[in-house]
Amino acid sequence: MEKTFNNKAWFMVLPVVLLVAFSAVLPLMTVVNYSVQDTFGNNQFFWAGLQWFEEVLTSERLHDALIRQFIFSGVILAIQIPLGIAVSLCIPKRGVWSSFCLVLMALPLLIPWNVVGTIWQIFGRVDIGLLGATMAALGIDYNYTQNAAHAWITIVVMDVWHWTSLVALLCFAGLQSIPDAYYQAAKIDGASRWKIFRYIELPKMNRVLLIAVLLRFMDSFMIYTEPFVVTGGGPGNSTTLLSIDLVKMALGQFDLGPAAAFSIIYFLIILLLSWVFYTVMTNYGKGEGR
């Protein structure tokens, strides 16, 4: 087979490689260095071998945080993906109302994470928050600072409020790419609304849905700021997700060795999941017709 590419072109990406090496690869290597050593400050390090990895891998604390993290991401996907699809189906296809809906939907996405956390932290308070006061007026004993279930409901609803728009906007973009001829053909065949969704809209949305699932899963898996501002990981450790636990360990306790080992395991889990999603996304449908 004739060679159709020139390997010298790889030198064109050299500046990016150097930049990424400086900003990501070298810091990651530092974390690996920390993970096998112990320090008491003053830039003095002592060899610890794989002790921190053993400690972290057998730690109930990490297992609990990991389980909580998977539950959180699972709940987020289970709510946001169907809700985002449903919302996108309700947005008018064209006209002024379509633009209005799109702008309205985009607004939560523009609010910084810590501001969202602060909004919901105040919103849920029984003494000064609208949600908390309304719950109290309805006779519901709602208190996210003392009740774990209430804290979970609050951070899940907050994330749904913040990010469902992203799924809806992506799905809307997928829906807009469907030619009218598909709908006309379905109408001639007398297809029901459900069948139009199942056999026309959903298959046409699969690409954007995969992107939406990837983005929402990765983002929810690495979430830190919003739950930290609202609950601080509490009550107890009930909303201490992986990144909150990691920051507590690294900066709160200054346990650099265990925190570095924890970071590497966290990084490997994210790397594995990203690779799985990326592989599924790039190979989806390629095997059809073979």
Binding site: M29, V32, N33, V36
Partner: peptide, 14 residues
Amino acid sequence: LDWMAWTWQTAAFF
């Protein structure tokens, strides 16, 4: 080797 808290083991690994 102590730059970035290097050890010979991690240097060999990388």
